[in-house]
Amino acid sequence: MTTLSRFEIHQPASVLEASQMLAQYGDDAGIYAGGTELLLAMKHAALNYRHLIDLKVILGLNSINVRNGSLEIGATSAHRSIERSAIVRQNQPALAEMESQVANVRVRVTGTLGGNLCFAEPHSDPATLLLVLGGTVRAESATGAREIPVAELIAGAYANNFLPGEVLTKITVPCAKPSHRAGYMKFQVHERPTLGLGLWMETPDDGRTFTSARVAVGCVCPFPTRGVEAEKVLTGSRGEVEKRLPEAADLIADAADLVDDHEGSVEYKRHLIHIFLRRVFRKALREPVS
């Protein structure tokens, strides 16, 4: 299709009003928070909302702050503003760097982090990294507010776990600490990555030993997936961890529901996980990757 079906567009003055609108129109309503994915889906008639609620007009919903040791990023912050934010660069450089590599500049200027997470596009970068950084999102509605870990937000490809009337208002990401190491890398032959891999580790002694780790893979599977079993073998001395990277890679691949598609076979995607786990490990330690 080249044209969109007609709908009404609403400009709520507050989150509360947006939530009431969502509750009122139910399945007929969707949130417009940039539109780089939403309008595509509507052009394909994959989504047919009769009401769009423009979150971008709500003042203050695109602010970026640090509070209680965490970054608080307003839901309608564009990828580009996160990438450029001095606060983000200083407090969670892995996030700023990942954002600087999302798609292309036109998408980053228009698309928002909140919209990206809600849409749950399997090839998106942010969710995979936020999974390992311990990100949470705040969902607000007329009846209250709750914090949802990113891991529990995503229900599947293009599906999230919001309740009716809930609006994503901000994303909270713990600030990096000197004992943290984190990185995100992707494999791509084009803008759409074939694989995304995020790794976070805690090291009390500057990379000699690792006391805990989180790892997640995206793009190769319907939704970003934590390698919980892999995380267990990614602790110990550096030597031990490095030796167990292949084992961890297999555990990640086992945890993810790898998809055989025109971007590559399951075997190749498993192979890429091996290669990129080693690379992202080095990258997180700020060493040359290959």
């Binding site: 780089t36 423009d54 200027v109």
Partner: peptide
């Protein structure tokens, strides 16, 4: 279809004119 919106490049095929 790139246009500048407040100086930033955007795909005008993915923008709602009303907004």
């Amino acid at each position: 279809c790139t246009v500048l919106v407040d100086g930033e490049p955007m795909n005008s095929c993915l923008l709602l004119a009303s907004q």
